[in-house]
C-alpha cells in the first residue's frame, strides 16, 4: 500500500504543482524519489508533527493540496488538535497519511501500533477517513484525495500487501465495494483485514458451503449506510473485521447504522479488544494472538452462524 501510495502521488504531483508532500522525518527509502524529482513540492519538516500539521494547513490555505506522511499515530494523534482546529475547521486540503495501521509495525511495540485511531479520528468534523483494503484501492483513493476534497485521514498498511481485487475496480469515495457476492452473511472489512475477510469467506464456502458476501468498507467516514442496510436486509447477519480496537472503530460505525435501521440483524465485531498489546512479535503473530488470522476468524464465524442458524 505504501508503494502504491507514493507511486500514485508522485505521478499526480508531476502533473499538478499544487500537490505537496510533507514528512516528519520518516519515510526512508519511500519518499526519496519524490523529493529528488519534485524538490519544490517536498518538505521534510523535521521531527515535529504539530508543526507539520500546522504548516500543512498554512500551505493548504494558500492554495496547496498537502499530504503529511508519517507512521502509526504520529501524523494524527501527536497533532490531533492541529488536525482538528487548523486543518478540519478551515476545511483545508490537508491529507494526513499514516503507514503502519493496526499492528503492521507490531514488533516495534505499543508506540508504533495504531489501534484507536479510527475511533478518535471518526469523531473529528469535516474529516474523511479512508482505509484502503489493498494497493489498487490505495492508488484510487490517492487519486481522489489529490483532487482536493478537504481534510482527510488516509490509513495505510505497510509495503507488500497482496492485491485483493481480482479485476479492475471502480473505486468511489464513500461507496463500499462488493468483493464477493453472498447471501448467508456479510463480512464488512476495512483496511488490512480485507484480505482476511476474503480468505475466510472462501474457506466458509469450501468447508461449510456457506456464501459470505464481502464488502470492502474503504471509506469509514462517511460510511456507506446504504450498503450496510442492504446487506442487513438481504443477509440478516453482519460481521465487521478491522485491525483496530472494537471500541469506536468500523464495528461501532456499522453498529450505529444497524441499530437505527430497524432491520433485525445478528451482529458480530471482530477486532482488537480495547487494550494495549503486550505481546512481542510481528503483525501476523500479534493478529493470531488476538484471533485475527484467517483460521481464527473462520472459527468465530462458524460459531456465530451456528448460534443463529435457526433464525432465518
Amino acid at each position: 500500500m505504501r508503494t502504491a501510495f507514493i507511486n500514485k502521488l508522485t505521478e499526480l504531483a508531476e502533473k499538478d504543482r499544487r500537490i505537496m508532500l510533507l514528512v516528519g522525518d520518516l519515510g526512508f527509502g519511500v519518499v526519496v524519489d519524490f523529493a529528488k524529482r519534485l524538490p519544490d513540492q517536498f518538505i521534510n519538516i523535521g521531527v515535529a508533527e504539530q508543526n507539520m500539521a500546522g504548516v500543512a494547513t498554512g500551505l493548504a490555505l494558500a492554495g496547496k493540496i498537502v499530504f503529511t506522511y508519517s507512521i502509526a499515530n504520529f501524523p494524527i494523534l501527536r497533532c490531533l488538535e492541529q488536525i482538528r482546529n487548523d486543518a478540519c475547521y478551515h476545511k483545508a486540503n490537508v491529507i494526513a497519511v499514516s503507514v503502519g495501521a493496526g499492528v503492521a509495525y507490531g514488533s516495534l511495540g505499543m508506540t508504533h501500533q495504531a489501534l484507536e485511531d479510527i475511533a478518535i479520528m471518526r469523531a473529528v468534523p469535516n474529516l474523511s477517513l479512508i482505509a484502503p483494503g489493498d494497493p489498487l484501492e490505495t492508488a484510487q483513493a490517492v487519486d481522489y484525495l489529490a483532487q482536493g476534497h478537504g481534510p482527510a485521514y488516509l490509513r495505510l498498511g505497510r509495503a507488500g500487501e497482496p492485491t485483493v481485487h481480482k479485476n479492475p475496480i471502480s473505486w468511489q469515495f464513500g461507496r463500499a465495494i462488493e468483493v464477493l457476492p453472498g447471501n448467508d452473511l456479510t463480512l464488512i472489512a476495512t483496511g488490512t483485514m480485507l484480505q482476511t475477510a476474503v480468505a475466510a469467506a472462501e474457506k466458509l464456502q469450501t468447508q461449510n458451503g456457506l456464501s459470505a458476501r464481502v464488502l470492502s468498507m474503504h471509506t469509514v467516514k462517511p460510511i456507506d449506510e446504504e450498503a450496510i442496510r442492504k446487506a442487513a436486509a438481504e443477509t440478516r447477519r453482519i460481521v465487521t473485521l478491522e485491525e483496530h480496537s472494537v471500541a469506536g472503530g468500523l464495528g461501532s460505525a456499522v453498529a450505529e447504522v444497524l441499530a437505527e435501521s430497524g432491520i433485525n440483524t445478528r451482529f458480530l465485531r471482530i477486532g482488537f479488544p480495547p487494550v494495549f498489546v503486550h505481546e512481542v512479535g510481528n503483525q501476523d503473530y500479534i493478529k493470531k494472538c488476538y484471533g485475527l488470522d484467517v483460521d481464527s476468524v473462520v472459527e468465530r464465524l462458524t460459531g456465530f452462524l451456528r448460534l443463529h442458524a435457526q433464525e432465518r
Partner: peptide
Amino acid sequence: VEVSSGSLGHGLPMAVGMAKAAKID
C-alpha cells in the same frame, strides 16, 4: 479573519506554511 484561533501555539505553524507557499509560488 484569516484563520480561527483560540488554542495557543497554532498560529505560527500556519503562518510558516503560508509564508513558505508565498516563497514557492
